[in-house]
């Protein structure tokens, strides 16, 4: 019971972290994270290799960030592009694996989501408490000004999007054992993450304090959000 709650809590907290970092650093709402989560489940079924899952996410995130940098000029354009990328993944999965709508794997690594969530939070908090954290806060608060002061915002954006994408695929891979895998599996997780992230944003905090608040609100909301996932 307690273990199930922890899995739900860390699943939601992880998705909220990914949504939040992408929005605050990358300045867009990454709607492809739901599709990436579902892709992780399919990778678990067809190629049960977590390294492959993480690398696929990393590659996708890099391509997504490059596409956004090249094509988009506003938050809405970048968000719509990421939505298109998410739909592309889902429809692609549906077309390629049409033989069965739902897939089930015969292993259950879902408790490792706790580890993935905890490591991700520690990683982000570690960055914000390090000298690099100041740069990150600067990018969060004023993207243009940070660029003028010589911070490589493009690189930070690419790294953030790529790591977030890798984490989403890996979370989908690890959660696959407790799910009926389908192209829309990730939407519930994505929505939970967006809701928690939006609630935390109302506190108007930056840096490590924001991410600690994100963790606390995920904990408080986990019981209600379980319905969605």
């Amino acid at each position: 019971m307690a273990l199930n709650f922890l899995v739900s809590f860390f699943s939601i907290a992880l998705m909220a972290l990914l949504v939040s970092t992408n929005f605050r650093i990358g300045k867009f709402l990454n709607l492809s994270l739901g599709g990436l989560f579902a892709a992780g489940g399919y990778i678990a079924y067809f190629t049960p290799n977590p390294v492959f899952a993480a690398l696929s996410g990393l590659l996708f995130g890099t391509l997504l960030s490059l596409a956004i940098s090249k094509i988009c000029r506003s938050v809405i354009e970048a968000t719509v592009l990421s939505l298109g990328a998410g739909i592309l993944i889902e429809r692609g999965l549906e077309i390629v694996h049409r033989s069965s709508y739902y897939y089930f794997v015969d292993f259950d690594y879902s408790t490792y989501v706790i580890l993935l969530g905890a490591v991700s939070y520690l990683f982000v908090l570690g960055i914000y408490l390090s000298p690099l954290g100041l740069k990150m806060k600067f990018v969060e608060e004023d993207h243009e000004l940070a660029e003028l002061y010589g911070i490589n915002t493009g690189m930070i954006f690419t790294v953030t999007t790529s790591l977030a994408s890798a984490c989403a695929v890996l979370a989908g891979f690890l959660s696959s054992g407790s799910l009926a895998i389908s192209p829309t599996t990730g939407f519930g997780y994505l929505i939970s993450g967006i809701i928690v992230s939006a609630l935390t944003a109302q506190l108007r905090q930056v840096g490590a304090v924001h991410y600690l608040a994100l963790l606390a609100i995920s904990f408080a909301a986990a019981r209600f959000m379980e319905v969605l996932i």
Partner: peptide, 9 residues
């Protein structure tokens, strides 16, 4: 649809 959304800008 996905391709149109990606190229929408």
């Amino acid at each position: 649809y996905a391709a149109i959304l990606i190229l929408s800008p």
